[in-house]
Design a protein around this nucleic acid. Structure first.
Length: 281
DNA sequence: GTCTGGTGACCAAGCCGAGA
DNA sequence: TCTCGGCTTGGTCACCAGAC
């Protein structure tokens, strides 16, 4: 790692100022402009925009593997951030998250791509339903995910002229939930490297589901893959295994601004005209 | 060249049953 | 009754092939 590389959640924990900026920018989506709760809570795209804004990165705003690309000062390459967010429904989800609880990431939902790679490896749906070769299935699925990272880095060079360093690119998750029943929602960021653990033990849970067990905690599930139910690949690393994390925080509550109020503020004369025309109708 | 419909990939959110 | 795991469903949008 070059000594000059300095990026929050990548090479170090976020500073207090960075954590506060993240919380405040996220809170702006509580004014009626957020994706969730009738505009009063941020949604996944709002979270991506927040990360891009606070870290002076570029949001892809599309379906790229990396949602945000950051150009750190002093180095000639970029790092990619794949932003994930998840509401944890349990009423005590955010209590003890730093001990044994796990964060939730859906890494992919692309069954056709997975089956293409599996087919190249000589594996079929019949093999899966017959619960044969779990290690081969699991290995192929993770190899496929890695191949997407490599492809994204290649495309990044082509599109921007700058290299994308996969070694320092990360998954950045925003988990939220309550610490006890009836209390306010709290949020917390965790970052994880793109590399997955070695020696994952794969086994079939059912003819519809493959799971990978955490080598550090062999009784706990690290991956789930549902090839016939949307092709979702889910990843559940322990929060305590995150190299970097924020403190838990709550969102501020700005005054709600209606769309009419916004339109009248941005375009006062045109809005007045629209009102006058409406009154004439 | 433009339009349109189908497909697949992105995002989680939602539902339901089992177990505590 | 509540929590959690397992699985399904839905909204959105990019891309591509075929029709015009």
């Amino acid at each position: 790692m070059p000594p000059s590389l300095d990026v929050a959640f990548v090479t170090r924990a976020p500073t207090e100022a960075e954590e506060l900026r993240l919380a405040l920018v996220l809170s702006t989506f509580c004014d009626g402009s957020g994706m969730n709760s009738a505009g009063c809570l941020p949604g996944w795209r709002d979270v991506e925009r927040t990360v891009a804004a606070v870290f002076n990165g570029r949001g892809s705003e599309n379906k790229d593997v990396f949602d945000v690309a950051v150009s750190p000062n002093g180095v000639a390459y970029d790092v990619g951030i794949s932003v994930k967010c998840k509401n944890l429904p349990s009423s005590t989800a955010m209590t003890g998250i730093e001990t044994t609880r796990r964060v939730y990431m859906e890494l992919a939902n692309s069954p056709a791509k997975f089956w293409k790679a599996l087919g190249d490896a000589g594996l079929t749906e019949v093999d899966f339903k017959g619960q044969r070769e779990p290690e081969k299935f699991g290995g192929s699925v993770l190899d496929t995910v890695y191949s997407w990272h490599v492809a994204a880095a290649t495309a990044h060079v082509k599109n921007t002229g700058r290299a994308l360093d996969l070694e320092h690119s990360i998954y950045l998750t925003l988990s939220n939930g309550t610490r006890s029943k009836g209390t306010e929602n709290v949020y917390q960021w965790h970052s994880f490297p793109l590399r997955f653990a070695d020696d994952i033990h794969w086994e079939f849970r059912s003819p519809k589901s493959l799971r990978g067990l955490d080598p550090k905690h062999p009784s706990e599930v690290l991956f789930d893959w549902y090839p016939f139910s949307g092709g979702q690949l889910k990843y559940y690393p322990r929060a305590s295994d995150a190299p970097f994390r924020s403190k838990q925080f709550t969102l501020q509550r700005p005054p709600a601004i209606s769309l009419f109020e916004k339109a009248a503020t941005y375009f006062p004369s045109e809005w007045a005209k629209a009102q006058a025309l409406r009154d004439d109708e």
